[in-house]
Amino acid sequence: MNKKKQTGQQKSDADLKRRGAKIGDQLRRIYEDVAQEDVPDEFLKLLEQADQKRSSGPADSE
């Protein structure tokens, strides 16, 4: 640990940036992990049901 004191601040800024970038990559992975899962059938079924309710229910316009 013989880092120069003067560059300490600069160094930690660079570190912070690097770590921030890494965290960014990982965040995208956490989100993508879910986004790339197969959508459970229930979602499509529910949307289909809602759509059919509309066409068979009281149609107020068209």
């Binding site: 879910v34 986004a35 790339q36 899962e37 959508v39 499509l44």
Partner: peptide, 20 residues
């Protein structure tokens, strides 16, 4: 409605990810 449903369907994975 058909186009809306189509686009909404493509968003389901994102809704799930945001909800999670």
């Amino acid at each position: 409605d058909k186009a809306f449903k189509q686009e909404l369907t493509t968003l389901i994975p994102h809704l799930r990810a945001f909800a999670r």
